[in-house]
């Protein structure tokens, strides 16, 4: 009958009125983020970084600027560079993640944050000090080892659990605790142990633990200042 469809329409909207709103009130509430979210706040572990600048070379836009100088540390492994400049010009970054893919030592991660809004383009550059001091909430993008992360300090010896489906999403970059440099690598993977010289587990353990995740070479940094 004519008019019944109109009543039907009214009932549809009435049903929606009784539903809970989908809105997430952003500053107070947050949607659950996918662990592979490619956020703005790059996570960089100076302890793991060798200064090879692969990330800078791979970046299609050339917005990563790295300056290094000899540090004199870890000579038997081929001497580790001391990082002086590590700037990421965020205003041009397209978050392709190629820099993260390029890093052979798991030193650079995509971040999980998205709140880098600034009033000036000059402030859009992430400097080395910001990277050093930032809270490390790495995204699991291109870092599958993190998706099996279950917490605890014994994470060096954990086995990756990516194959176990649902546990992939148990890692919450934003809500979880910040991760130290010892917890994020792929050292437990056999190929990684053999391929990635300089970051082997035995040698890492040989480095005296300063207790505060302090870079091992930073004590000798000042006497080798260049330019």
């Amino acid at each position: 009958m004519y008019g019944l469809a109109m009543v039907k329409g009214l009932m549809v909207t009435l049903k929606n009125l009784t539903r809970k709103p989908f809105t997430i009130q952003y500053p107070e509430e947050r949607a659950k983020q996918h662990p592979r979210f490619r956020g703005e706040e790059f996570v960089w572990y100076e302890e793991r970084c060798t200064g090879c600048a692969s990330c800078a070379k791979y970046c299609p836009l050339g917005i990563i600027k790295i300056e290094t100088s000899p540090s004199g540390s870890m000579i038997p492994q081929g001497e580790k560079y001391r990082l002086e400049v590590f700037d990421i010009e965020l205003q041009r970054c397209m978050f392709c993640g190629l820099c993260v893919e390029a890093c052979p030592y798991d030193a650079l991660f995509m971040g999980s944050g998205f709140e880098q809004g600034q009033y000036s383009r000059k402030n859009m550059v992430i400097t080395i000090d910001q990277l050093r001091n930032a809270e490390k909430h790495p995204s699991t993008w291109f870092r599958p080892q993190l998706e099996g992360y279950e917490g605890g300090t014994d994470s060096f010896r954990r086995t990756p659990t990516i194959a176990q489906g649902e546990s992939r999403f148990s890692y919450d970059p934003r809500g979880g605790p910040p991760l130290g440099w010892r917890e994020v690598g792929r050292e437990s993977w056999r190929w990684h142990q053999s391929e990635k010289a300089g970051m082997r587990l035995e040698q890492d353990e040989a480095v005296p633990d300063t207790g505060s995740d302090e870079p091992p070479q930073s004590g000798r940094g000042s006497d080798a200042a260049a330019d």
Binding site: T13, N16, L17, R19, K20, P21, F22, T23, Q25
Partner: peptide, 13 residues
């Protein structure tokens, strides 16, 4: 407010 709820939103709050 009411229109927002009809559309599963919250409306001005």
């Amino acid at each position: 407010r009411v229109l927002g709820r009809f559309q599963n939103r919250v409306g001005p709050n």
